[in-house]
Amino acid sequence: MEPRQKGALPGGSAVTDDDDRDRRAERRRFDDVALPHLDAAFNLARWLVGTHADAQDVVQDAFLRALRHFDGYRGGDARSWVLSIVRRCSYTWLARNGAAETLPLADDAVMAEPGGPEDPELAALRGADRRRLATLIERLPPAFREVLVLRDLEEMSYREIALACDIPVGTVMSRLARARTALRRAWEKPIAKEPAPREKDRGV
């Protein structure tokens, strides 16, 4: 993706034509760089802000900002660049909206699911597992959640994550390890009634 030349075309007609063309070229270049990462952007925003509608707003805002600051993009990893902006917008949103403690599903509801004598019992069980896992991930503090999402769902390298989150690679490594450990412990634990499971409640 090489930068296009600013076009001072010969026979200079109306200045606005050239400007228009430049902007258009710039837009196209932006689209090439940023749009392929729309899904990654939405996934990250959705995991950080918690609802579909809010994630859409955040992503739209982020892309607008990305376009405005596109001249600051110096090539390199486009996905990390886009995600770093999405991430900042997500945190701005969270700060403004009071970082709602999202607990979308009560554990009791999750537990009540399997055991129904319907034929796809296994499917129900799996569905319940999925929801429980999603809930547990949502309970991780955002700094840990984002690293986990970028690694295990987005499959980015530690270096790319470090770029996107603006933290050292070593921090990516330790946060990821702590996130997975917390998740593993919570997963293995019989379902707790309390929203925030604490380690010392049970001697695990």
């Binding site: 729309l38 996934n43 995991w47 994630a55 739209q60 896992l133």
Partner: peptide, 17 residues
């Protein structure tokens, strides 16, 4: 890690976005 990959939702951008 495998459970997360297989079972945690990946939210793709809705068509309208």
């Amino acid at each position: 890690v495998e459970a997360i990959r297989d079972q945690a939702p990946y939210y793709t951008a809705p068509a309208g976005l």
